[in-house]
Computed example of a mutant assay.
Amino acid sequence: MLDAMLSKGKEDENGILFVCFPITAIAAVLSRSPMTVKRSLNELETAGLIMRVRQGIGEPNRIYVLIPGKEDAALA
């Protein structure tokens, strides 16, 4: 996802890169079921590695790839 964000990412209104990657597309690329993809995305979000922002009905979420420890560096 980080590669996709860097190569095909879009900027939000704050200039932060994100990627819109529908769950069905992720499932097809990884040859996994949509439920497995949802579970994996939930785990990544719980671990603080990604942040998903809902866009609306029928539109894919914005997925922001977070860099571990980046928040701590900003506070120092």
Rank of each mutant, 00 (worst) to 15 (best):
G56V: 08
N61G: 01
A28S: 12
A4D: 09
G15K: 01
L30Q: 09
I26W: 06
G48I: 06
M1A: 12
V65F: 06
L6K: 14
L6T: 01
M51W: 04
G9E: 13
G58S: 04
I67L: 11
L30V: 01
G15A: 05
G9N: 10
S31K: 15
L30W: 13
I67V: 14
L49S: 07
E59W: 09
I23S: 01
R54T: 14
V65P: 04
T46I: 07
G69D: 14
V65A: 09
A4V: 09
D12A: 05
R62C: 09
L49G: 02
G58C: 10
L2N: 02
N14K: 13
S40C: 07
I50L: 00
S33W: 01
D3W: 08
A27F: 07
V65T: 13
I67R: 13
S40A: 14
I26H: 02
N14A: 09
K8A: 13
E59Q: 15
K8G: 03
T24V: 04
A27V: 05
M1T: 15
S7A: 13
F18A: 10
T46N: 09
L6H: 10
A27N: 06
K38S: 14
E45F: 01
M1H: 02
F18K: 00
L44V: 01
G56C: 09
T24S: 14
R32V: 03
G48E: 05
I57H: 11
M35K: 11
L17S: 12
M35L: 10
I63S: 03
D12Q: 00
Q55K: 10
M35Y: 08
P22F: 14
E13H: 02
I50P: 03
L30N: 12
N42L: 05
K70D: 14
L2K: 15
C20S: 14
E45T: 00
I16A: 12
A27G: 04
R62Y: 04
G15N: 04
P34F: 08
N61L: 03
V37S: 00
L49W: 08
N14R: 15
L41I: 00
M5E: 13
P60C: 08
V65C: 10
K8L: 15
K10A: 09
L30I: 00
E43H: 06
V37A: 03
